[in-house]
Design a binder for these strands. Structure first.
Lengths: 260, 260
DNA sequence: CAGTGGTCTAGACCACTGG
DNA sequence: CAGTGGTCTAGACCACTGC
C-alpha cells in the first residue's frame, strides 16, 4: 500500500510552464519522510535508524522501496550503511569523513598524515550583515550575524586563514570561548550543539595576492599568490547556513579535486 | 543462471594480507562484461547499447541484475539512460556534458553563456618524456610523447593556457594541423579518432604567479596570481592517458566546485 | 544464533518515446 | 502500438556483525 494515496506531486518546474504534474515515485516520497525524521532530530547523528524491515512496515511499503530511498540518502552522505549492523545517521565527527569538506591536502603524504590541524580563533563577534553577506545567507541587510576568523596550521605552519559568517538566530549561544575550547571539526560542533548539519557546499576558487594583513597571519610575503576559496554550506532543506572565505597557502599543500 | 559459475573473485587487497577472497556479486561481474564491450568498441560513443532485456538474455541473468550493473555505469557517466529510448554510450561531444571537465565558469552568467571558447593551438610537437612526465603517464623516461600548448579565449579574452602531454603510441597520427582544424572539445576528437575515452580525472590546484612568458600569452602583468591546475586524465582501465598543466585567469572567471 | 544490510529472481505494472 | 527504461512487490538466499 502506498504511503501517500496519490503518487502525483507538483514539481518546481510547474512555476515555469503549465506542464503535467511530475510523477513522484513512491521511494522518493519515502525518502522525503525519512528526511523529515532526520531534520526533526528523531534520529540523531551517529545513531542507527530503524532497520529496512521496520521502516517498510512503518510506511506500509516493501523493503525494496525503502531500500531505494535509503540508497539515495546514502549516496548523498546523509546516512551510512554498515552491513550486519544497520544504517546510521552520518556525522562530521566521523574520523573517515573529516576531509570531505577540506580539499587542501599536503603535497606528499596522505590527507591528515601531518596529524590534526591546529585551530586558532583570532576573532569572534556579533555583527550586522552587509548587503552581500545577507543576500548569500538569505537574510536581510542588518540582520545579526556571527563573524569569526581563524587560522589553521599544519605541523606548526599557518596554512589556512578563514573568515566565517553564520546567521545569529540558529546559532544562539555560540561564543568565542565555546569555539576556542572546542578541538575538533567545527561542523561536528554545529550538529551536536545546534542541530545544524552541513550537507552540501559550493566553492568558488580564485588566485589572489596576499594583502590586507592576511600575509601577516599566514606569514608569507605581501603579494604572495593565495588560493581564495569562497564556500557556501547548505543544510538539509538546502538553506544556506554558512559563508566561509578561506585563503590557502599552496606552497606545501594543494587543493585536490576529482572529476568524474 | 550465473554468468560465471563461481561468484568468488580475488581482490586487490589480497596482495596486502591473506584475507578471505572478496565476494564479487553477479551484477559487478556483469558490469565488468559490459565494460569490456565498451572498451573493445562493440558499442561506440553515442550509440545505444542493447536493451536491459536483451542483455539479461545474453548474460543469462535477470533484468534486475543487468539494471544494477547499468546503474553503476550510468553513475560513472560511462553510459546515459533515456527513458523510452534506450541506454547510450556517453560521449564528450554531448552538448550538456561539455563542462564536466572544465570547471572554470564566468563570474556572472551560466557556464557556456559567453558562447563557445576560441581554441588556438600555439605549439604541437613530438618530444621525449622527461622523468616526471614519464612517471605520471606510466611511461619510461625518453619514451615518445606528444606535447601541445594552447590558449582558450572567452569573448576574445585569453583566459586559459594549457600545456598538454599525451603518450605518442595511442595517438599515432595526431598532428598540429588535425588539432588546429578541429573545432570542438579535444576529448571528443580523442574518442572518435583514437578510441581513447577520458572517464575520470584528478586535479591539483595551486595559486602561482604568472611567469616564464605565460603572462604574455594570457595578457596579464608579470607576477599576476593565476590558478595552476594540473590534471591527470584516465581511461576505462584507469590508465593515465593525459597530463595537462593549465593556468587560469580568475579575474572574470572562477573555478567552481561542489562538495557533497 | 538472530538480526542486519546485500544480492538475485520473476513478474506486474507505469511512464516515456517514436513510428 | 510496441519497445524502452522506471517502479514496486514478494520471497528467497547470502554475507556480515555481535551476542
Amino acid at each position: 500500500m502506498a504511503a501517500i494515496s496519490t503518487s502525483f506531486a507538483s514539481s518546481p518546474a510547474d512555476e515555469l510552464a503549465n506542464t503535467t504534474p511530475a510523477f513522484s515515485p513512491l521511494y522518493q516520497q519515502i525518502k522525503g519522510l525519512i528526511l523529515q525524521s532526520l531534520q526533526s532530530g528523531e534520529w540523531k547523528p551517529g545513531e542507527a535508524i530503524p532497520s529496512e524491515m521496520d521502516l517498510a512496515a512503518r510506511y506500509r511499503v516493501s523493503q525494496g522501496t525503502v531500500r531505494k530511498a535509503i540508497d539515495e540518502l546514502a549516496s548523498g552522505h546523509l546516512v551510512v550503511r554498515r552491513q550486519g549492523k544497520g544504517t546510521f545517521v552520518a556525522t562530521h565527527a566521523e574520523q573517515n569523513i573529516q576531509f570531505r569538506f577540506l580539499k587542501l591536502v599536503p603535497d606528499s603524504g596522505t590527507p591528515g598524515s601531518e596529524g590534526p590541524a591546529q585551530r586558532e580563533i583570532i576573532d569572534c563577534r556579533r555583527a550586522r550583515a552587509s548587503a552581500d553577506i545577507a543576500r548569500i545567507l538569505g537574510l536581510r541587510s542588518g540582520d545579526s550575524v556571527l563573524q569569526a576568523r581563524r587560522v589553521l596550521s599544519f605541523a606548526g605552519t599557518p596554512t589556512i586563514l578563514e573568515d566565517i559568517w553564520l546567521p545569529a538566530a540558529p546559532f544562539k549561544g555560540l561564543t568565542a570561548e565555546r569555539l576556542a575550547n572546542y578541538h575538533g571539526p567545527m561542523y561536528a560542533l554545529f550538529e551536536t550543539e545546534f542541530n545544524v548539519r552541513m550537507v552540501r557546499a559550493e566553492e568558488k576558487i580564485r588566485a589572489e595576492p596576499a594583502t590586507d594583513g592576511r600575509e601577516l597571519l599566514l606569514k608569507v610575503a605581501h603579494g604572495t599568490p593565495l588560493l581564495s576559496v569562497e564556500r557556501i554550506a547548505y543544510t538539509y532543506q538546502d538553506l544556506p547556513m554558512e559563508l566561509r572565505r578561506g585563503y590557502y597557502r599552496t606552497d606545501t599543500h594543494h587543493y585536490r579535486n576529482t572529476l568524474n
